[in-house]
């Protein structure tokens, strides 16, 4: 066991975390405005855009990975572009993984954001407008703070989903140590090589990590819920106050 521990190559762990962090950050930057755009659109547009954005949810990862490979590979349109820019092919590289992960995790960021934005409703926006707030001002000072639980959920889900990604990565990234060999791929490798102890350790770590993420998610959401719960008796007390 101790031998396995010292032999254990932890670089896939750090690579996974790096990939998930970068992906989550970029994803939020894209998904927040897009979710807001979709929310404020007409019904027909909303349905089409939402369907497109949730497509990665139902496609098998290998299908997605295949399309990504075709898109990012040296003959693909994005691959050609990156080559012309002197960046080389995107397939089997870390940036390629980031692009694939963003698309793969997109629905997990978009859905909670969209739900959060829709739950706000029209009233706070109208109130802000009558208080002289421009639409952008209102988005920054009213919409984003009110959607905070949704943004948090989107971030946690995107992060966790990217960490757990396997099929797409195998298709687009292969298995290059330090570049594309992330945690899930490393575990697969260890099992292939019958290195069950390493596989156990990494899988166990993944299990604990996943539990912690979900715990955090529910705890944070629960904290938001509890806030209104604990204040309910206070509000009642205030109501009594005013009756005096």
């Amino acid at each position: 066991m101790s031998a396995a521990l010292t032999d254990l190559d932890l670089s896939p762990v750090w690579l996974s975390i790096k990939l998930a962090s970068v992906t989550t950050l970029i994803l939020l930057l894209i998904a927040i405005p897009l979710a807001w755009f979709i929310t404020s659109r007409q019904r027909r547009w909303k349905s089409a855009l939402t369907a497109l954005a949730t497509l990665p949810l139902v496609l098998p990862p290998s299908v997605l990975g295949f399309y990504m490979l075709m898109l990012l590979g040296s003959n693909g349109p994005l691959g050609q572009l990156s080559q012309q820019l002197g960046l080389g092919s995107l397939a089997f590289t870390f940036p390629g993984l980031v692009i694939a992960s963003i698309i793969y995790s997109f629905p997990f960021a978009l859905q909670p954001l969209q739900n959060a934005f829709e739950a706000i409703g029209r009233r706070p926006l109208e109130a802000a407008a009558t208080l002289r707030a421009s639409p952008l001002d209102c988005f920054l000072t009213v919409v984003l703070p009110l959607a905070r639980p949704g943004i948090l959920t989107a971030a946690v889900l995107s992060f966790a989903h990217t960490i757990g990604e396997f099929g797409v990565i195998l298709m687009i990234g292969g298995n290059i140590p330090g570049e594309t060999r992330v945690l899930s791929v490393a575990i697969y490798d260890h099992v292939e090589a019958l290195e069950y102890q390493q596989a156990y350790l990494l899988s166990g770590g993944m299990l604990v990590f996943s539990f912690l993420v979900l715990f955090l998610l529910h705890y944070l959401n629960g904290a938001a819920g509890r806030h209104t719960l604990t204040t309910a008796p206070l509000a009642a007390a205030n109501g009594r106050d005013s009756s005096r």
């Binding site: 009233r123 706070p124 109208e126 109130a127 802000a128 009213v142 703070p145 009110l146 905070r148």
Partner: peptide, 9 residues
Amino acid sequence: FQESSLFSH
């Protein structure tokens, strides 16, 4: 407005 429109945050 008819009902409360205060910002809850």
